[in-house]
């Protein structure tokens, strides 16, 4: 069974909130991104979502856009992703899911990347602009390499599509909380609850975690009350931008424990 899924289930049975934290690889430099990721894991994220920067990130708001632009400008290359994963893996056991838009992956080679992820110690991939309908190659290769694959379930998805997203996913399915791109929002839509219950109605056993717009400890614990975990990105990067590693660590601790 997927280690991501195992951790999510264990947290649930212990009554502990699950926090999935995003950080872009190579931001602001390769070494600094390793330090930031390790610090996030040590401060309490249950799953690390490691972003591969991309020139045209249409699901991302300004905070993540600006961070990934910096990473690309300082020369980030995908072949360095294994090095980054290995460096993190040497210091922490937290499961790592790589988040990437689809074009960088097909240029690198889906199979090649799968092989690299396995040997570096990552658990799978989150693919925001790949729907299961277009994912034949990735479905096959992720089975072959026993990697997690996370697809999106959104407020606009039909009942059939919610089921398709959930059944195609392994690790968890990404419940999109609101119609929109990454960033921080004051109020989380009631729509997030509908997505989660829609996924559950499809009688899938895949956990459903909720992301997009989550920025406060209250939101994390609220989401955990009806879903299997909360995903936070922009708020963590903002904290890092404002107060470095200390800011990031404080932010993650607060999100995870509510204190």
């Amino acid at each position: 069974m997927s280690s991501v899924e195992t951790i999510i289930r264990e947290n649930k049975s212990k009554g502990v909130d699950t926090l999935i934290g995003y950080f872009p690889a190579g931001y602001p430099t390769l070494e600094a991104s390793v330090e930031a990721c390790v610090a996030m894991c040590e401060a309490g994220v249950d799953v690390l979502e490691l972003g591969i920067p991309y020139s045209d990130p249409v699901m991302d708001g300004l905070v993540i856009q600006q961070a990934t632009e910096v990473s690309l400008a300082t020369g980030f290359k995908i072949r360095e992703i294994s090095k980054i994963i290995k460096a993190i893996r040497q210091r922490v056991d937290t499961p790592i899911l790589v988040m990437s838009y689809w074009n960088p992956i097909i240029q690198y080679g889906v199979k090649q990347l799968a092989e690299d992820l396995v040997s570096a110690g990552a658990q799978g991939m989150i693919t925001p602009d790949l729907i299961p309908d277009e994912a034949a190659e990735w479905l096959q290769i992720s089975d072959e390499y026993d990697l997690d694959r996370v697809f999106m379930a959104t407020p606009s998805s039909s009942t059939e599509r919610l089921a398709k997203a959930a059944n195609s996913s392994r690790g968890f399915v990404y419940g999109v909380s609101t119609m929109g791109i990454t960033g921080t929002r004051e109020d989380l839509d009631a729509k997030a609850r509908a997505v989660v219950s829609g996924v559950r109605d499809s009688r899938t056993s895949t956990p459903v975690c909720v992301g997009i717009g989550i920025s406060t400890a209250e939101q994390v614990s609220e989401v955990n009350s009806y879903a299997d975990g909360a995903i936070v990105g922009s708020a963590i990067i903002k904290a890092y931008n404002e107060a470095g590693i200390d800011g990031l660590v404080n932010c993650v601790r607060q999100l995870k424990t509510g204190k």
């Binding site: 249409v58 999106m152 407020p155 998805s157 599509r161 997203a165 999109v176």
Partner: peptide
């Protein structure tokens, strides 16, 4: 061709 977009847009 195809539809390589976020799931959020599929319904539209």
């Amino acid at each position: 061709g195809g539809r390589f977009v976020p799931e959020s847009l599929i319904a539209a």
